[in-house]
Amino acid sequence: MFQRLRHYADAILSALPSNRLLAIDAFRGLTITAMILVNNPGSWAFIYAPLKHADWHGWTPTDLIFPFFVFIVGVSIMLSVSVQHEHGKPRQAIVKHGAKRMVKLILLGWFLALFYYNFRDPSFHWFTDRLMEMRIPGVLQRLGVVYFATLLIVLYGPKRHYLSWAIGLCLLYSMLLLWLPYSDANGVRYQGELLPGNNLAAWLDHLVFGAKHLYADSQPFASDPEGLLSTLPAISSCLTGVIAAQYLQSKAALGQKVVAMAGCGLILIVLAELLSTVMPINKPLWTPSYVLLSTGFALFILAIFLWLIDSLHYRRWTAPFVVFGANAIAFFMFAGVMARIFSLIPIGDRSVQSLLYRDLLQPLFGNYNGSLAYALLFLCMSYLVMHWMYKKGWFWKV
């Protein structure tokens, strides 16, 4: 059996170009795998603490997943732009392609928001109850906007200023969040609040999108973790990936890169904890301390991957993550669609998800382990589909 697994892993890895940065592919695959795992428990009532988001201030490992993906997008932008420049592709053509990609990501996000139907409620009307109340922001929507904004900075900004852009956007966001006053519908004036539903980011999203089109119906303002204002520091997170890619492209020795990235990552984590006494670590607000923390962990993990894969040559373990990472957006869309189908399609008075969890996994493993078992089962099912696409050579490039 182990021999077959080794042959399987070798077959996947041998198909990769020799100049491919396997550490990036493995990190991308691990990140999207973790994202799907935490998004699909058997029951939202039974989730182990590390597999759910912090309630507000603070963080869990789950809070690091999305910024890891944003960081990797930044790495990919820098590597891709470098290759396109080498092939003489005009800057305008790169921008045009990037704009199309942003629009596609936004449309895919809206598709997932609209892919819903309540079969159990005879009064449910998709047009009025779903389309007219569709959540406008979202994960893919933010990814698209952040990707395109970062691409423009990379194409039109001097390389030596990328760090300045990242710091400047975080400073601008902090000043707006803490110093710009705002008022609710009753004329009550606020400034510098960092509470759920009461902060400048929530006020702006409520004003622009309206309460019905946001994630949380909080008070005094509806709010969204992927809202407008917090996109500014998310761009900073993406730019840190760009800067990391610049260093990876340098002529420094592998060992030097590993030590420098790991050391820098640990320093950023410490700085994040120090800054959190002034600006709390908060994912929904994507605070600057959160940018430092997530970037620090991303750099440290990437350094570990470089050490394991390129220095110690432990490569076979990356094969499943390469498969997942090669079709990351397709994986995300497939998981989103299938999760909704499993929870929506009625089988008697149950859904597919309910049958699997409550009638099979929960009795076997208990509440929490059964919920985790469902997530792992969903992940295995997804892997079969992604592996089939990988073998066919079907790579969905948005």
Rank of each mutant, 00 (worst) to 15 (best):
Q3R: 08
H7L: 14
L13G: 09
S14P: 00
P17G: 07
P17A: 10
S18N: 09
R20E: 15
A23Y: 10
A23S: 15
A26Y: 12
R28E: 13
G29S: 06
G29N: 14
T33N: 14
A34D: 05
M35F: 08
V38I: 12
W44N: 14
I47Y: 05
P50E: 11
K52N: 13
D55H: 07
D55C: 00
D55Q: 05
P61L: 01
G74L: 10
I77N: 10
M78T: 00
V81I: 11
V83K: 15
Q84A: 15
H85R: 15
R91L: 06
K96T: 01
K96D: 04
G98R: 01
G98T: 02
A99S: 06
L105N: 06
G109L: 00
Y117T: 07
S123P: 05
F127D: 03
F127V: 10
R130P: 01
L131C: 14
R135Y: 09
G138Q: 05
L140D: 14
L140V: 10
G144R: 08
L151N: 14
L151R: 08
R160P: 01
Y162P: 02
S164Y: 12
G168M: 01
C170A: 13
Y173Q: 02
S174D: 08
L178R: 08
L180A: 12
Y182D: 08
D184L: 04
G187F: 03
R189N: 14
Y190G: 08
L194F: 07
L200G: 07
G210P: 06
A211N: 02
A211M: 08
K212N: 13
L214E: 09
S218F: 09
F221N: 10
A222S: 15
T231E: 04
I235P: 15
S237N: 15
Q246P: 03
L254C: 02
K257T: 03
A262Q: 11
G263A: 05
G263D: 05
I267M: 12
I267T: 11
I267W: 08
L268H: 06
L271C: 12
E273C: 01
L274E: 04
S276L: 03
T277D: 09
K283D: 14
K283R: 14
L285E: 02
L285S: 07
L293N: 04
T295M: 12
T295P: 08
F297S: 10
A298L: 07
A298W: 09
A303I: 03
W307S: 09
I309G: 03
P320H: 04
G325S: 05
F331V: 01
F334S: 08
A335V: 00
G336N: 03
R340M: 04
I345G: 03
I345Q: 03
I347N: 06
I347S: 03
D349E: 05
D359I: 00
Y368C: 01
G370L: 11
A375K: 13
H387S: 09
W388Y: 14
M389I: 00
Y390P: 13
K397I: 04
V398A: 13
